[in-house]
Nucleic acid binder design. Structure first.
Length: 155
RNA sequence: CCAGACGGCCGGGCAGCCGCUGUCGUGAUCCAAUCACGAUGGAGGAAAGUCCGGGCUCCACGGAACAACGGUGCCGGCUAACGGCCGGCGGGGGCGACCCCAGGGAUAGUGCCACAGAAAACAAACCGCCCGCGCGCGCAAGCCCGCAGGCAAGGGUGAAACGGUGCGGUAAGAGCGCACCGCGCGACCGGUAACGGUCGCGGCAGGGUAAACCCCACCGGGAGCAAGACCGAAUAGGGGUGGCCGGCGGCGUGAGCAAUCAUGGCCGCAGGGAUGUUUCGGCCCGCCGCCCGGGUUGGUCGCGCGAGGUGCGCAGCAAUGCGCAUCCCAGAGGAAUGGCUGCCCCGUGCGGCAACGCACGGACAAAACCCGGCUUACAGGCCGUCUGGUAUU
RNA sequence: GGACCUGUAGCUCAGCUGGAUAGAGCGUUGCCCUCCGAAGGCAAAGGUCGCACGUUCGAAUCGUGUCAGGUCCG
């Protein structure tokens, strides 16, 4: 069963969003993770691969009624365990905020797997740049509808 | 104040917004389960390397001993145990506080010690030294050569040459004798012991290497939480059983001492079936019901009250032990413990007389069953004791 | 969690067992050859033997510790 996440955008959140779109306090749970190594391999084999400062992204379209699933990878080349953990957490947080912003704007994203691969500078790039990168990724994978707000896949 | 030695401790703080996760409470849909809200907890001194030792679990095994293999190695103590720690002994280093040491056995045996050197381990004799004899030279002292002996002091080689120094002694020499030192043996004294001291005896045997083999003493069963326990879907397969159907031979398997019996396991022949009409080839030949066990994805437990933390007291030089009081203090699972921001703190640089302002930086490194150690990495800081200088009194 | 392996010249490796000279190939540099280059020939340079401590008369080699890289098993 598809996981249902209801967001009630309050007036306060809207006003804050309009003033400063890059606040780091948008309500919303992180996306479900990719459970299997096979999913990672499939995304690597058939997904679209793009490189950004601080991360490499692989997106694989699944089906519009499936939620967005997030996979995170940090190899030993990135650094020791502390650096790898920090890189993964920054990527997860950036993805969570970007997805929540789309929901707040009443344009939730669905229907693809997103694999984020940490790079050696993932912990060093400004967090705002990571968020902009994730927003750009979501727009590419799931273009926002025109002015009328597109209803969610689930009522 | 400077330089240094040793021991112990800390490892940024506060707040805001948004998240993750454990526990508890309340509520919601019918229980399960999930969700919402609230409260509360949520990485380290090394969590690391995985170098040792245990707990725990399973497997194996009469106890135990021997052998093999591996480890440890001065003495005493501490400890659940240790290769750890504490205290001492011996040796070495430092002016000193203090630091370092795999530190049992070389008269149980075997092996090795290159080059050099006469000789590298039952000692031996290259250059040499000395007595005697002979030939020759020389006025003589003496010298050259040869023979037969004595010697191991001196030279030379080496990392190391069969005790060292001095005196006596001698033809020259030699523990040949003596004194001191070293070594060995014995007795006594001190000490639990390692060991130390004193006295006496022995003229000296026994070079080094055991981080070469080895000997001696002591220790060690193996594997590891992916241990292990439980639940267990769909599909396929296994075993048992009941009903229906089923031809022959060979092989295999099982039972039995054997004859033999059983066997829808395999192969061949025959027969049947399905896909399109015939031939050929390939494919299939049991079906249904019930029960049982194994087992993959997955789930639950193991899983945190413990050789536990803190404080005080007592015993002990100490490691540590005992007693009392008090506290509950992480439990993830593609893997939580976070993201962002502000202020403060510390350091450096710049501006400034100063208050201060601005910029940059704040280490190493993250649980994965738990505990005791060891080792390694680490910005900066705090406390205590002591040593050597310098200055003042 | 467990079991192992390898660190030697710029690169790939030998030497380690059994201790005493640190070597080979490629590469680099110089010279010769050629009108020039390649090939070839001659010669040379190039080493904390991963690091530290120790054993020994003597350590790349033996011992211990440590660091780095890599492999395998469940």
């Amino acid at each position: 069963m598809t996981r249902l996440i209801l967001i009630k955008p309050s007036d306060q959140a809207f006003s804050r969003l309009s003033v400063q779109p890059k606040v780091s306090s948008v309500t919303g749970s992180p996306p479900p993770p990719l459970p299997k190594r096979a999913d990672f391999l499939r995304a690597a084999a058939r997904g679209q691969k793009r490189a950004y400062p601080g991360l490499v992204a692989q997106t694989l379209l699944t089906s519009p009624d499936q939620p967005v699933r997030l996979g995170l990878t940090a190899s030993r080349k990135v650094g020791n365990a502390v650096i790898r953990n920090r890189a993964r957490r920054r990527l997860r947080e950036a993805a969570r905020l970007a997805l929540a912003e789309r929901r707040v704007a009443n344009q939730p994203c669905t229907g693809f797997d997103l694999v984020l691969i940490a790079r050696h500078d993932t912990g060093a790039v400004p967090f705002a740049a990571l968020r902009q990168t994730l927003a750009d990724l979501l727009d590419r994978a799931n273009p926002p509808a025109p002015s009328p707000a597109k209803p969610g896949a689930n009522p």
